[in-house]
Design a binder for these strands. Structure first.
Lengths: 132, 132
DNA sequence: ATCCTTATTAGGATATAATATCAATAACAG
DNA sequence: CTGTTATTGATATTATATCCTAATAAGGAT
């Protein structure tokens, strides 16, 4: 048996979808528990991680703070306000985006960070050998 | 008096520059303390933050792990191996980079995350009012 | 060179975020 | 319905980073 459909998974995912402000894991916990007090923090964290790992949600890492989650999975980017911490969507091609953002969005862009995740050649080799 | 040139600042910055593996703050602490045991963790963290905030270093946030630092400040990006955790540089224009990376680098790209930091219009307003 | 002001530091305590542990629960295949 | 085992709840623990405070020292003024 591989994976089970539990009430908790459905509730956490639906709650995330209903929240449009790029909530942190703890904000999702609070929202879930407002309707289902018996669902534990560990469960919400576990399910959010699974959603992020499987590509059903995005995890957004912010300097000096908790991870935020986004149920929108189409390719897009995020702006994070250094003062109030709000996270907002950006839906544009990325080249020279920082400048465009400064010019057109009203944001004052101070910096950005792009990061790819995946397997390096060495680890892919190991994975293949384990699988074969 | 605005800012003071301390031995600690020089040592931390020089140590970061000498480390080419995108070290975490704790790795910088260990390296610094191997030569200067009296320099405290809090000091190294403070100085690394200051370097990142002033643009003299880059902070790279990684899912499920500590921040990494990079003394190279020219615009470039990073690949993070999900298995071994290594961080490597990417020096290419970013459009459709994920696909290019998969094809040419030997990495298997599973996802990426781009994030801008700055001030949102509301916070800029507040800042301006405070300054005026 | 010496004094003064105050930015900075050392070291430990504390805060915060996320994960590990493990017994109890419940999904679902047979 | 039953058995297997993935999943959960609750809490402990870890990991990462910051806060706090007295002591130190940078660098301007004398």
């Amino acid at each position: 048996m591989q994976e089970r459909n539990t009430l908790q998974k459905r509730i956490v995912h639906e709650t995330l979808i209903s929240m449009c402000n790029h909530p942190t894991a703890d904000e999702v916990v609070a929202e879930v528990q407002s309707s289902y007090p018996s669902i534990s923090r560990a469960t919400v964290y576990r399910i959010l991680n699974k959603l992020a790992d499987s590509g059903e949600a995005l995890r957004i890492r912010i300097n000096n703070g908790a991870d935020h989650f986004d149920h929108q999975t189409f390719p897009h980017y995020h702006v994070h306000c250094s003062v109030c911490g709000k996270v907002a969507d950006v839906a544009m091609p990325v080249e020279e985006l920082a400048d465009m953002l400064s010019d057109t969005s009203g944001y004052k862009i101070l910096g950005y960070s792009l990061q790819f995740d995946g397997l390096c050649p060495e680890c892919m080799k190991v994975e293949e050998e384990r699988g074969a």
